[in-house]
Amino acid sequence: MTTETEFKPGIRNITEFEAKAILMEYGITAPRGIVFETLPDKIELRFPLVLKVSDASIIHKSDVGGVKAGIMGIYDLLEEYGAMKKKFPNSEFLLEEMAPKGVEFIVGVTRDPVFGPVIMLGTGGIYTELFHDVTFRRLPIGRPDALDMIQEIRSGVFCKGFRSTKIDCEKVADLLLKVSGMISGGKLDIVSMDLNPVIVSAAGAVAADAKISFPV
């Protein structure tokens, strides 16, 4: 996986904030957040917060030091903002509430050259690239497909409960179906989408990070 900033011909990336705004239109939950160039004086978000560089040309933000999570208070925030501003003087920033801890999934969409749009579910977060524990379906999918997908990946075990962690997999299925509804029937013409991680806890399924690219 490439780490540098990249531009692919025929593909237009949007910022995480823009991507999440689209998700929310389709009923997918994302953390509350604001975008700014200069940190505003008054912030109506609940700590802990996460500060991220907001720039459509930076795809893998954490690889370039563009993500600072676990900001506990205002002094923390001022310090991290200062450091981040120095690193990315010409970019905007996204400040968000942190999603509650839970089981991390990756949900994605891409275009298969033979089968067209396909949806992926996998073990998320830092484990995505380590375990490649993923499964695919052709879009659109139904609820039985969504439930099968959950069964097929290792993290599906948390639906039955594992080491005192138990999640409601209907919430994962709901999210998969919302993504399916979003893409199917040509409603949203995208090239690719990564929601990683989607954090599933008692609070529901939250898309903590989102990347969407469109055809130009």
């Binding site: 996986m1 490439t2 990249e6 692919k8 795809i59 893998h60 990756i106 994605g108 969409v109 891409t110 298969d112 050259p113 033979v114 396909v118 992926m120 996998g122 995505t128 690239e129 490649h132 993923v134 695919f136 690719s192 989408m193 990564d194 990683n196 990347k211 690219s213």
Partner: peptide, 12 residues
Amino acid sequence: AASFHTGALATD
């Protein structure tokens, strides 16, 4: 060569 995880993991 895909830049997103999903694209890179989507082997045929």
